[in-house]
Amino acid sequence: MVRFKKRYIVLEVELPPKCKKEDRLLYFSLKNKIRQLHGEYGEAAVEKGLRVKYVNEQTNIAIISVARYAFKLVASTLPFVTKISLKTLYVGASFKHSLLFIKKHHEKTLRALRVSESSVDTQKT
């Protein structure tokens, strides 16, 4: 059996405040935009494989999966989504790799935070 190949897009999301069911909000806003831009054909082509895999409101990071052949259709609509502001961080071929990327990303941001904090501390002393 051959694998159904997917692409995993890691996004930085800015969710509206006091938001519930973030994954559904993300999914439907994306799908509505695809219908607007690529029409029914694009919607049908994307349907198989488009899932919101992971949303974290604390860290503002989400992962969506797309079928490989329809990647361009989804990637071209991402900048047009207005309800949630999105920023593509990484496109990976497996879920594991995108999680690894998130880990590295967090480490990087933490280190930057620490550096800034320590600089603040040194200024205080």
Binding site: F4, E40, Y41, E43, A44, A45, E47, K48
Partner: peptide, 17 residues
């Protein structure tokens, strides 16, 4: 039919895959 159109495109894509 709008709905049928979507379903048929999906079916044919599935058969292609």
């Amino acid at each position: 039919d709008v709905h049928a159109r979507k379903q048929i495109i999906m079916l044919s894509h599935f058969l292609h895959r």
